[in-house]
């Protein structure tokens, strides 16, 4: 079965970011296809490469990034939500005249249309949020 997963909360603040990651792992383990994971609202913070949690804690952003690499996942950060919250890839930072970018490998920034298209293409849409 083909899934689009929507993640609406940031890492560490709300368990839904963890739940989404666990769900995606379990779905992949069962042989399902994750068509897209779309990060919206504070969920865009799952895609920063500048997080440094305490050593004994999980590193959610890195776990998403590793999972994306392993399974060729399409992890999409909503551009409108990202701009509000200071998440930038190199192209967007340049376009906005900013001096830094902070997206971790495996994520890409794109528009809300990617969410709608994902839900059209997928058999199921699962929302994780607060």
């Amino acid at each position: 079965m083909k899934y689009t997963v929507m993640v609406n909360e940031g890492p560490y603040q709300h368990q839904s970011a963890d739940s989404a990651l666990q769900f995606v792992r379990a779905a992949l383990a069962k042989g399902h296809e994750i068509f897209r994971v779309f990060f919206y609202h504070d969920g865009v913070n799952n895609g920063t490469r500048l997080a440094v949690p305490p050593k004994d804690d999980r590193l959610l952003q890195q776990e998403w990034s590793d999972l994306a690499k392993e399974h060729d996942l399409d992890l999409v950060i909503c551009i409108a939500a990202a701009q509000r919250r200071g998440l930038m890839d190199a192209d967007e930072a340049k376009r906005q005249g900013l001096d830094a970018d902070n997206i971790i490998e495996g994520f890409r920034i794109s528009g809300l249309g990617q969410l709608i298209e994902g839900s059209i293409q997928s058999d199921r849409t699962i929302v994780f949020g607060d």
């Binding site: 379990a26 069962k30 399902h32 199921r124 699962i126 929302v127």
Partner: peptide, 13 residues
Amino acid sequence: FVDLTADNDKTQS
């Protein structure tokens, strides 16, 4: 959890 999402036609959170 994954099985439940597959066995039902749709989900609402």
